[in-house]
Each structure stands twice: as structure tokens, then as C-alpha cells.
């Protein structure tokens, strides 16, 4: 009888011990009970009025749609070669404008309507592009790399206003499709964003 009791106690202890060691949550989960949780990457984010993930996503979405509808892309006999140039941040806050253009590039590449040439961060003006093309003409390999049908440039601007109760932020992201040969602006569009913050609810 004593042996049975000892065995039962041992089993109970073992169960308690091992269940204590088992990680919370389940297979494939670490830190299940922590405060860190995964959220919807495409959810509307309104934590602050600064330029955020939602603005990045909606701007890229809207401008890509507009560009795909432009006749220079939609009616092109074959996908044109495009080079993304710098989008200037003319606001007072830090905005990673390359994140906007990278997102647009991914969307355009997925569309199959556009081919992209590698960026050249040092060349950020239409004039530079033309000079580069001309200087590379002598070398066939360089010429293939340099001959873009179009370049995409743009600006991000913001206007901020505030009084005792309300803070208003207006963002304007504009993009242009430019012919590097003629310097002609063939397509342009903008995405406007307005964010209003009640001062009582958010400290700033």
C-alpha cells in the first residue's frame, strides 16, 4: 500500500514539475504571455499625426493605380524602362521617402507593366540623367544601363497649423513621370492626406 502511495506521489510530483517547465502558449510560440502582439500590417494607424505606415501604404497604392492608368504605361507597346529618382522630403519631419518609392516600385513590378533600372542615388536631376546618357553612349554596356524611357521623381510637402485645441497636418505627396530625353513631364499626380488631432487627447 505504501509503495502505491509513493508511486502516486512521484507521478504527481513529476506531472507538476514537467507542466511547470512547459512553455506557455503552445508549439511554435515564444513569449506568448508578453505584451508584444502581432497586428494587422495594413490596419489604419492613428497613434500620432506624424507621417505613418497608413500614409505610406495609401500613398503608394493611390499613386501606383494612377500611374498604371496613365497612357504612357497602360498603352505602351512594351513595358517601358523606368528609373526611380529621389523623392524630396520638403517637410520638417523625417520621412523615409525611399520607403514610398520602393513600395511603388514593388507594386509596379508586380503589375508587369513596367521594367525598372537600378537606382543611381548620385544622379537626382533630369539634367544629370541626360548628361549621364550622353556620356555613356560611347560604351554599349553602360548605355543599356543608362537608357531609361522614363524617370520618376517627386516631393513630399506638409503644412502644419495648430491652435489651443486642434492640430492640423496636411501632407501632399506628388510624383512625376519625366522623359529624360526631352525633360517633358508626361504624368503627374498627388496624394493628399489631412490629419486632425484634438489637443486634449494627445500630448504634443
Amino acid at each position: 500500500m505504501k509503495t502505491i502511495t509513493n508511486i502516486s506521489l512521484s507521478i504527481t510530483l513529476a506531472v507538476i514539475l514537467f507542466s511547470g517547465c512547459a512553455p506557455k502558449g503552445g508549439a511554435g510560440m515564444v513569449g506568448y504571455q508578453s505584451d508584444v502582439k502581432y497586428g494587422d500590417a495594413k490596419a489604419v494607424e492613428t497613434v500620432t499625426a506624424d507621417f505613418g505606415s497608413t500614409d505610406l501604404q495609401t500613398t503608394a497604392e493611390s499613386l501606383t493605380q494612377s500611374l498604371l492608368e496613365s497612357r504612357y504605361i497602360a498603352k505602351a507597346p512594351q513595358p517601358p524602362k523606368v528609373r526611380l529618382r529621389a523623392v524630396n522630403n520638403l517637410t520638417y519631419e523625417h520621412i523615409d521617402t525611399k520607403a514610398i518609392t520602393d513600395k511603388i516600385r514593388i507594386k509596379l513590378l508586380k503589375s508587369g507593366q513596367v521594367r525598372f533600372l537600378a537606382d543611381n542615388a548620385n544622379l537626382n536631376q533630369v539634367k544629370d540623367e541626360r548628361e549621364f546618357t550622353e556620356s555613356a553612349t560611347a560604351n554599349k554596356e553602360n548605355k543599356a544601363m543608362a537608357d531609361s524611357d522614363y524617370i520618376i521623381t517627386g516631393n513630399v510637402r506638409s503644412i502644419k497649423k495648430a491652435n489651443d485645441d486642434v492640430k492640423d497636418v496636411y501632407y501632399n505627396v506628388s510624383l512625376e513621370l519625366v522623359s529624360p530625353q526631352s525633360g517633358e513631364i508626361l504624368w503627374a499626380d498627388e496624394k493628399e492626406i489631412r490629419k486632425v488631432t484634438s489637443k486634449s487627447s494627445v500630448g504634443w
Binding site: 495594413k42 497604392e61 493605380q65 498604371l68
Partner: peptide, 24 residues
């Protein structure tokens, strides 16, 4: 999927949304 987009409709108002996919 598109990102979630915020939209405001005032009372007695209709709003038209237009979206286009960018993949074939």
C-alpha cells in the same frame, strides 16, 4: 488586399470609392 483606408461620410451623404488592383 489593399491597405485599410479611413473614410468619413457625413449624415445624408453618399461617397463613391474607386479602387483598381495593380496585379493582373
Amino acid at each position: 488586399t489593399t491597405p485599410w483606408k479611413a473614410i468619413t461620410i457625413h449624415k445624408n451623404q453618399k461617397v463613391q470609392i474607386v479602387e483598381m488592383t495593380n496585379i493582373p
